[in-house]
Design a protein around this nucleic acid. Structure first.
Lengths: 224, 224
DNA sequence: TTGACAACTGAACAGGTGTTCGAGTATTAT
DNA sequence: ATAATACTCGAACACCTGTTCAGTTGTCAA
């Protein structure tokens, strides 16, 4: 005897509608809908039918349910529009000739913030002390960072060799992003772009490390 | 008479603990905890006390509540760890000398995916057809894109002047990222870095636009 | 037709859950 | 001390909500 399958194979129209509703509801209220709310919105008169479909969706692996718990459901996989975000405050701009703002000096007035999925963040930098700066001007081009880019920094005073840091060079009145190397007679600041030459800083010159670059984001929507 | 303030100004220890619990609970279950669950975990014996604190947190603007609705609360502002994510599939790599994969040709096997906060996305590119490629090699340096960067693309066949596109140049067997300009006698592909010279393509040479660059993400966690 | 099964209905039930209230304790200002 | 305020407790209530179940309808195969 042949096994019976669902009348309309895969996801029926109602399955789809329910998934979409859960998604949009959760997007709006930050918590899942109740069975009755789903029924109301999807024109399903009985709670048992909603339950019926929810079970199927769970069997399909599109949904997880916490039985007995109110609103205890969650979309799984790519349907899930929600996830861990890190909100990183944009404390200001970084540009040549201007000192870099760091959280302490900035009077704590994040003009804006950018949201980063924690899944994007390098392993252990998920601390809450990250901050972001918007790059102004093209003076960071040798660091492969363009006008308008957003750099995300972790405030540190010291860096290890090979880390990209934001530094303020007093003697040059210059702010730059470079790879940092401590050497016997001072420091070497290496541009990300190998076609540029490193800056050598002698031990007696002052060099203030303001932060360690964790991420660079470029939105390419100019001209739109 | 002086106004009375809370015993411990600002957020008390319990306020903090409750916020943290809601955050971690929601991170795990994708839905908020019930009042009783909060009480249990925060060593608060009475539901009314939890309610008491929740009211205060709402008054402080750190929480929003949907009264009468089970688990009807959400963290607001920077405490909120949840938000809209877009999951963009990483279809492969982009490198000089290799054709670019586009969704159709890729056999739809996203090896991996990156999550982007929708708030980061340029206005109208929030469609679900975006895809991402990992940059391999340093051949895109003139586009300010480095080895290991992730570029997020929107699959298009045509582009408007000024848009950054990923193209396959048949005559050169080359894949590149450039700003696109159509001119009277062909096309001009302008590097993002002004220190590089544009590539001029004659009308009879073939030029395949594979996608329009929407975003570039660079994780700077090498050497860690 | 008959049987099997998916889709659906309506109602009732049990437990989850937010709310409310009266009362008690602790801390602080006067 | 006294009063005012902040905080805590426990219990009771009413509604919210998931669950269950007996029964109906529609479709398809034998």
């Amino acid at each position: 005897m042949m096994m019976m399958v669902r009348k309309s194979k895969g996801l029926g129209e109602r399955h789809q509608k329910i998934l979409e509703f859960i998604e949009s509801y959760q997007r709006e209220y930050q918590h899942p809908p109740s069975i009755r709310e789903i029924g109301e919105h999807c024109k399903i008169s009985s709670t048992s039918v909603v339950n019926y479909y929810l079970d199927q969706l769970e069997k399909e692996g599109l949904l997880e349910r916490d039985r007995k718990i109110s609103r205890g459901m969650r979309l799984v996989g790519n349907n899930n529009p929600l996830g861990d975000l890190l909100r990183v405050p944009v404390l200001g701009v970084i540009q040549a000739g201007e000192p870099i703002l760091v959280p302490d000096e900035a009077g704590f007035t994040p003009e804006d913030s950018v949201e980063i999925a924690t899944s994007l963040m390098p392993s252990k930098e998920k601390g809450k002390d990250l901050f972001a700066l918007k790059v102004q001007g093209e003076s960071m081009i040798d660091a492969m960072v363009n006008d308008g880019d957003i750099v995300i920094l972790k405030p540190v005073q010291d860096a290890r060799n090979g880390e990209m840091v934001a530094v303020w060079l007093n003697e040059r009145s210059e702010t730059t992003l470079k790879y940092y190397y401590k050497e016997k007679d001072g420091y070497r600041l290496q541009p990300a772009n190998p076609q540029f030459k490193p800056i050598l800083i002698k031990k007696n010159e002052s060099l203030q490390i303001k932060g360690k670059v964790v991420m660079v984001i470029r939105k390419v929507d100019r001209y739109n």
